[in-house]
Deep mutational scan, measured.
Amino acid sequence: MTEYKLVVVGAGGVGKSALTIQLIQNHFVDEYDPTIEDSYRKQVVIDGETCLLDILDTAGQEEYSAMRDQYMRTGEGFLCVFAINNTKSFEDIHHYREQIKRVKDSEDVPMVLVGNKCDLPSRTVDTKQAQDLARSYGIPFIETSAKTRQGVDDAFYTLVREIRKHKEKMSKDGKKKKKKSKTKCVIM
C-alpha cells in the first residue's frame, strides 16, 4: 500500500485542523484551538488504489514558523489553505509557496490551493482571484467548507493525484537520464 505524506499549511484560523478532522473523523470542530502540530493517518481508496494518507496539520501562528522547514522537508505534497473571508490569509499563500519551493529546492512541488469556509456569506476573496492565482502557479484550486464537508475529500484526493503525477514524471525523467548515460565512448 502506497503511503502519501501530505502537509496542510496556511495562516492561523483558516480551518486547516477543521478540514483535516472532517476528512479523518467526519465531524466539524467549530471551536478554535490553535494547533502546534498534529499528525493523522487514514486509509482510503483513490482511483481504485488503496493508500495510506499521513497528514500533518501544522501551526499557522507566526511564533511556530521555525518548525516549518522541518515538516516541509518531509512532506510530499501540500494543501495551501486560505479562508475566503480573510484576504490576508490569501496573500500569505505566496509566502508559504515560496518557502516550500526553497526548502524542497524545487520549482515543481505537488500543491493544491484550497479556499476554505465557502459556506460563509462574508467572502472577501473572489473565486476568480483564487483561480487566477492557482493557474499562475500551475496547481489545482478547490473551494471547501469544513463545516458542510463540501470539497473536503476532493481537496485531499486531488493532492494525492498531483503527487502521483509528480512521481510518474520524475521516474520518466530518471529513465531518460539513465538511457543517456548508457551511451559509451570508444577510443581507438
Rank of each mutant, 00 (worst) to 15 (best):
K117C: 14
I84M: 14
M111L: 07
Y64I: 14
T74I: 14
D126Q: 07
V109P: 06
S65W: 04
G75E: 04
E98I: 00
T74A: 14
V109W: 07
I100S: 02
I84A: 14
E107K: 09
V125R: 09
D126T: 09
V109F: 12
V125W: 10
V125C: 11
K117Y: 15
M72G: 09
F82D: 01
D69F: 00
I84Y: 15
P121A: 12
A66C: 13
M111W: 09
S106C: 14
N86W: 02
G77A: 13
V109I: 12
P121Y: 09
A83T: 08
F82M: 12
S106F: 09
Q70A: 01
D105G: 14
S122W: 08
K117E: 10
A83I: 01
P110C: 04
D108R: 06
F78H: 04
L113M: 08
Y71N: 11
D126A: 08
R68A: 15
K88W: 10
N86D: 14
F82I: 05
K101R: 11
S106M: 12
S106L: 12
E98R: 05
T74D: 10
V112D: 00
M67G: 06
V81G: 04
N116G: 11
F78P: 00
C118I: 11
Q70K: 05
K117N: 14
S122N: 12
F90I: 08
M72C: 13
F90W: 13
V81E: 08
V114A: 04
D119N: 06
P110K: 03
N116Q: 14
I84H: 14
M72D: 03
R73G: 06
N86E: 11
G75A: 13
V112Q: 00
V114F: 03
V114S: 01
D108N: 09
K104M: 13
D119M: 02
G77T: 02
G77C: 12
T124G: 12
V112E: 00
P121S: 13
N86I: 03
V125Y: 11
A83L: 01
A66I: 15
C118H: 08
I84G: 15
L79P: 02
D119S: 05
D119C: 06
M111K: 04
G75L: 07
L120G: 14
N116H: 14
K101M: 12
N86V: 02
P110M: 03
T74P: 12
E76N: 05
V112A: 03
V109Q: 03
D108A: 08
E76Q: 06
L79E: 00
N116L: 15
L120Q: 06
T124S: 12
T74K: 03
E76S: 07
M111E: 00
S106G: 12
I100W: 05
M72E: 04
V114K: 02
N86T: 03
N86C: 06
D105A: 08
T74H: 15
V81C: 11
V125H: 08
P121E: 13
A83W: 02
E63P: 06
D126Y: 08
E76W: 10
C118P: 05
D69M: 03
A83Q: 14
C118M: 11
Y96P: 00
L79S: 00
K88G: 10
M111C: 06
G115S: 06
K117A: 14
D119H: 05
R123I: 09
A83E: 15
E63T: 07
S65H: 07
S106W: 11
T124I: 08
V114D: 01
K117R: 12
E76V: 13
N86L: 02
N116T: 15
Y64A: 15
I84V: 13
P121M: 13
A83G: 14
V109G: 03
L79T: 00
L79M: 05
V109H: 04
K104G: 06
A66K: 03
C118V: 10
E63D: 12
F78T: 01
I93G: 02
L120R: 08
M67H: 01
D108V: 06
Y71V: 15
N116V: 15
Q70R: 01
P121D: 13
G115I: 11
P110D: 01
N86M: 02
M72Q: 04
D119F: 02
C80E: 02
E107H: 09
K101S: 08
V112F: 04
S106A: 11
K117W: 14
E76F: 08
F82G: 12
I84E: 15
V109D: 01
F82W: 09
G115F: 10
Q70G: 02
M67I: 09
P121L: 09
G77V: 12
V114L: 10
V81D: 01
C118L: 12
F78V: 07
A83P: 13
E107W: 10
E63M: 04
R68G: 15
R123N: 12
G115D: 03
C80D: 02
P110E: 01
P121K: 10
C118T: 07
K117F: 15
P110V: 03
F78I: 10
G75N: 05
Y71R: 01
K88C: 09
K117V: 15
A83M: 04
C118G: 10
Y71D: 15
V81K: 01
C80Y: 14
L79Y: 04
C118F: 08
R123Y: 09
V125S: 10
S106R: 07
R102L: 06
G75H: 04
